[in-house]
Amino acid sequence: MAYNFDFGQVISGEYGQWLVSGLVTTLHISAVSIVLSLALGTAVAVLRLSKVRPLVWASAAYTEFFRNTPLLVQIFFWYFGSYNVLPTAVNDWLARRDFEFACGVIALTVYTSAFIAEEIRSGVFSIPKTQLEASRACGLSFLQAMAYVILPQAFRVVIPPLISQFLNLIKNSSLVMTIGVMDLTYMARQIEAHTFHGFEAFTVSTAMYLCISLMVSLGVNLYNRRVLHARAR
């Protein structure tokens, strides 16, 4: 089977713009989901560390369930399945917005927050228990002790694993193309459908993902070297 390679068509002109707009969408949806999943993950971790039984159970159930089901199934659930469980008013409100994008954000946020909660929890465990006891003895409440004493220290330890979770999120965001979010992977498939030059489109989009990943892991390595090792010294 003959195949004519034609990179020019894919990286310039209309199709080149498609890829760029796909890249922008990928970065956009990832950025929003990263911020939200960090907040949600922290909240879930704090619940897990509280000594209140029902909260601990709820938080444990949340992390276990969302960590142990495929993201793709979760995306489908939020997109097609949430309609029947949400109130009509919420559905109408969502439908008027960019529903595909919102759904992608929800799925990525919930999925990643379960992993982030676990990372933060293990980060907090690495802080000596006496820290919490000492701050409680100083008269801080549990939440205050968490917010001002424990979490700031824990975050410094968990930043590298957190960033690798964020990187996973960026890579996982390619799945939102299944519900019609026009991200980088979606655009690569569109170009394939229009031009039958899938090879070039996939090469360029894979290279884009790789660039993002390599830049982020470079950043983590620098951080490890500068901050963690400096502290160890």
Binding site: M1, Y3, K171, N172, S173, S174, L175, M177, T185, A188, R189, E192, G198, F199, F202, S205, T206, Y209, L210, I212, S213, L214, S217
Partner: peptide
């Protein structure tokens, strides 16, 4: 290791499905 870990699984799946046959014939 770096290339594979930096690529989304979905991309790897597409590579093998649509593009490997172009190369393997």
């Amino acid at each position: 290791i770096e290339v594979i870990r930096g690529t989304p699984l979905l991309m790897v799946v597409f590579w093998f499905y649509f593009l490997a046959p172009v190369l393997l014939g």
